[in-house]
C-alpha cells in the first residue's frame, strides 16, 4: 500500500539532518567564521579606526608585536591566569560536584545557587567584584577589619600580587560552577555497582576517589579543564573591568591589550594581530576537547 508512495522530506534522513543542522551552521558561519576571517585579514592590513580601506601590510603587525614588551607581558599574564585558574577550577569543580551529587535536604536550592555565578553575565558579575574589591568601599576589607585580621584596606586591585590573585579568584568563582556541572554528569554516569564493589572490598573514601572515581571521570574532568582554560584564555571582561590591564600593564592579557591597542589606540590592524595570537592555542584546545569527547563516546 505504501510501496509506491512518493518519499517525503521526513523520509530522507540526509536532507533532514542538513535541515536541522542548518541554523547552527549559519550561526557558526555568521558569528564565528566570518569574524575570524575578518580578523585574519585585518591582522595583515593597515586598517585603522578611521580608515577601513584594506592595504596589504604583510607580517609588519606581527613583527611589531614581537618588539613590544607589553605584548610579551600580556602573553605571560594570559598563560599564568589560564594555568592557575584551570587548576583551581578543576579542583573546586570536582569538590563541588561531589557535594552536589550527595543526597541532602535542599539539594536543588543549593544547585541553583551554585550555578548563579555561571549564569550571571560576566560584565555584571565583574562590576560587582569591582565594588567588592574597591580600594575605599570594599565590603571584604570591611569584614576583615571588623574581625581584626587587617588594619587598613588591602588595595586588592592596586598591589601587583593581589591584583593577580583577584583576577584569578574572579575567574575561578565564575567558572567553577560550569566545571562542577560537567564533572557531575560524569559522576552520575558511574555505575553504582562499581562504587559498591570497591566499598565491599574495603576501599576508603580517598582510595575510591583516586582509584575509581577520578580514573572513570578523567575524560569529563579534561573537558571541564579545557572549557575553563578556553574561557579564561579568551576573556577580556574580567581584567578590563577590574584593572583595565593594571598600572604598568601588570595584569594585562592579550585580549585586553588587543582592545586597548586596536580600539582605544586606533590601530585596528595591530589589535587584530595581537588577538590572532590566541588562535593556535585555542585550536589546539578545541582539538583536545573533541578528542576527549570522542574517547568518552568510545568508552
Amino acid at each position: 500500500m505504501t510501496g509506491g508512495a512518493r518519499r517525503t522530506l521526513a523520509d530522507r534522513e540526509g536532507a533532514l539532518a542538513w535541515l536541522f543542522m542548518l541554523p547552527s551552521v549559519i550561526y557558526i558561519l555568521a558569528l564565528v567564521a566570518v569574524p575570524f576571517a575578518l580578523a585574519v585579514a585585518l591582522a595583515f592590513s593597515d586598517v585603522t579606526v578611521g580608515d577601513p580601506s584594506f592595504d596589504w601590510a604583510g607580517w609588519a603587525n606581527f613583527a611589531r608585536n614581537f618588539d613590544d614588551p607589553v605584548f610579551w607581558r600580556a602573553l605571560g599574564n594570559t598563560f599564568l591566569f589560564t594555568a592557575v585558574s584551570m587548576l583551581l577550577i578543576v579542583v573546586f569543580g570536582k569538590i563541588l560536584a561531589n557535594i552536589l551529587v550527595a543526597d541532602f535536604r535542599g539539594k536543588w536550592l543549593i544547585r541553583f545557587l551554585v550555578l548563579l555565578p555561571w549564569t550571571t553575565p560576566v560584565a555584571l558579575s565583574a562590576v560587582a567584584w569591582l565594588w567588592l574589591l574597591d580600594s575605599i568601599y570594599s565590603p571584604i576589607d570591611w569584614v576583615l577589619r571588623r574581625i581584626g585580621l587587617i588594619e587598613g584596606n588591602l588595595n586588592w586591585l592596586g598591589e601587583p600580587t593581589l591584583e593577580m590573585v583577584s583576577v584569578i579568584a574572579v575567574h575561578v568563582w565564575r567558572l567553577t560552577p560550569l566545571a562542577a556541572v560537567i564533572v557531575m554528569a560524569g559522576l552520575v554516569a558511574i555505575p553504582r555497582e562499581i562504587e559498591e564493589a570497591a566499598r565491599m572490598d574495603g576501599a576508603g573514601f580517598w582510595r575510591r576517589m583516586f582509584e575509581v572515581t577520578i580514573p572513570l571521570t578523567l575524560p569529563v574532568i579534561a573537558v571541564a579543564a579545557l572549557f575553563g582554560a578556553i574561557l579564561t584564555f579568551t576573556d577580556m571582561t574580567v581584567v578590563y573591568v577590574l584593572t583595565r590591564g593594571g598600572a604598568t600593564h601588570s595584569s594585562e592579557v592579550l585580549a585586553s591589550w588587543a582592545y586597548i591597542r586596536g580600539i582605544s589606540g586606533g590601530d585596528v590592524a595591530q589589535g587584530a594581530s595581537i588577538a590572532l595570537f590566541l588562535f593556535p592555542l585555542l585550536l589546539a584546545a578545541a582539538i583536545a576537547i573533541l578528542r576527549a569527547v570522542r574517547r568518552m563516546e568510545v568508552t
Binding site: N155, G158, E159, G246
Partner: peptide, 9 residues
C-alpha cells in the same frame, strides 16, 4: 600616596 592609585578608574 599609596598603591591605591594604581588601581583607579
Amino acid at each position: 600616596m599609596t598603591n591605591e592609585i594604581f588601581s583607579w578608574n
